[in-house]
Amino acid sequence: MRTVTNARRDRPRAGAAAMLRPPREQMDRRAVPVWTIELLFLTVPVVAAAVAAYWVFTSRPVWLGVLTAGFALLLLGLAVAAPRAYHRLNRWEVTGEAVYTRTGWFTHVWRVAPMSRIQTVDTERGPVKRLFGLADVTVTTASAAGAIKIEALDHELAAELVERLTAMTQATPGDAT
């Protein structure tokens, strides 16, 4: 699971003295085909509808054909490329004290929740993810804005994580607010 970090991307910027380090764990490799399939489910009907509309409802001018083809290629290209980028960027880590994740491409978002303040731990598995043996884990705190989602874990790993988090949080007194 532990992979070599992309050194170029994570090198600290010149001038920035302190920065958050990337979480240690990467998502499961199988997440890439899962997200690709899920995205294709969304994009293929749109592309098909666009092409069909071009073929049936227009007099098929060349410029519109080029435009439609461009649109179709863009969507399909996105469906193939986005999961790879997503897999590279999204990372997570669970230490003895906290849950830590990083997400986002345009806007980087790091989230930290301390063990002592975790209230619920949920797992969720969509149909495609179940096929590939993956699961998502969502950790919530008392805050309405504090849910942390760890996506695309091996489902046994996810179950283990849930068990561990639950055991750890139950050991903490108080109502975690």
Binding site: R2, T123, R125, E156, E160, V162, R164
Partner: peptide, 29 residues
């Protein structure tokens, strides 16, 4: 960034537990 953490090691190093797929474990205050 690739060296092991000084804190508790990541999940990958813990032994396998019972798979409880789809389970919802809730801790109520």
């Amino acid at each position: 960034p690739g060296t092991p953490a000084s804190a508790t090691p990541g999940l990958a190093t813990t032994e396998a537990g019972t798979p409880v797929s789809g389970a919802r474990l809730t801790r109520l205050p």
